[in-house]
Amino acid sequence: MENLGKIVYKGSIYDLDDSNDTNKLEQLLKQLNQEEADIKKEIATSIQSDLEERE
């Protein structure tokens, strides 16, 4: 399998091939999951805002 490489998230570099530091990746995953939820919420809010009737 080829190397996964590195990703940069909010200014920090994460080495995806570093098998000695899965905790760091677990923390990153938590942040990404939260960001995913936030974006979905923002899209839902935008749709909801369209539907609110203004007199």
Binding site: L4, S19, T22, I39, I43, S46
Partner: peptide, 23 residues
Amino acid sequence: LMVKLVTVQAQIKLVKSAIFINK
């Protein structure tokens, strides 16, 4: 927002795969 969402979802897949393989 949708572009951001797809990007974050791609990153999540990458990180999950890395955790799975690295363990």
